[in-house]
């Protein structure tokens, strides 16, 4: 009875549980890298490292701040893009595992039978 229940779970809710857990891993991965925040702030200055205008509003100060903002935003863009790429690579790895799981999962209960068959075929050949 227990074997029957185990197989029922394996080909029923177990299969979707396995796939769900891969989906959960993907979610944690994106959260860990804060991909949504990185995309939202892709062109924002890196850590707000902007020089103060010292309270004087003139053309020179304005140009300085503009330049400073461009450099800071550039650094921020490179840093964030790198993180997004790393997250992407890891996500692809997780997707490969997802596909493998989906394919191999139904085969696992048959492994003992396959193993015996392979054993017999190799011993007799």
């Amino acid at each position: 009875m227990l074997i029957f229940n185990c197989l029922r779970w394996w080909y029923g809710s177990g299969w979707s549980w396995r796939l769900q857990s891969h989906r959960q891993s993907l979610r944690i991965l994106f959260e860990y890298f804060s991909v949504d925040a990185l995309l939202r702030t892709l062109f924002a200055p890196y850590r707000q490292t902007l020089v103060s205008d010292g309270g004087q509003k003139n053309m020179s100060n304005l140009m300085n701040r503009l330049l400073d903002s461009l450099v800071s935003s550039g650094i921020g863009f490179v840093y964030r893009t790198t993180l997004i790429i790393v997250a992407g690579i890891l996500a692809i790895g997780e997707l490969v595992l997802f596909v493998l799981s989906a394919v191999l999962w139904p085969v696992v209960p048959l492994v003992p039978l396959l193993a015996i068959a392979l054993y017999i075929s190799q011993v007799t050949s």
């Binding site: 991909v35 925040a37 850590r47 707000q48 964030r80």
Partner: peptide, 10 residues
């Protein structure tokens, strides 16, 4: 939140 969370803050 993760490692990119606070990058846009000073």
């Amino acid at each position: 939140g993760g490692i990119g969370r606070d990058l846009s803050f000073g």
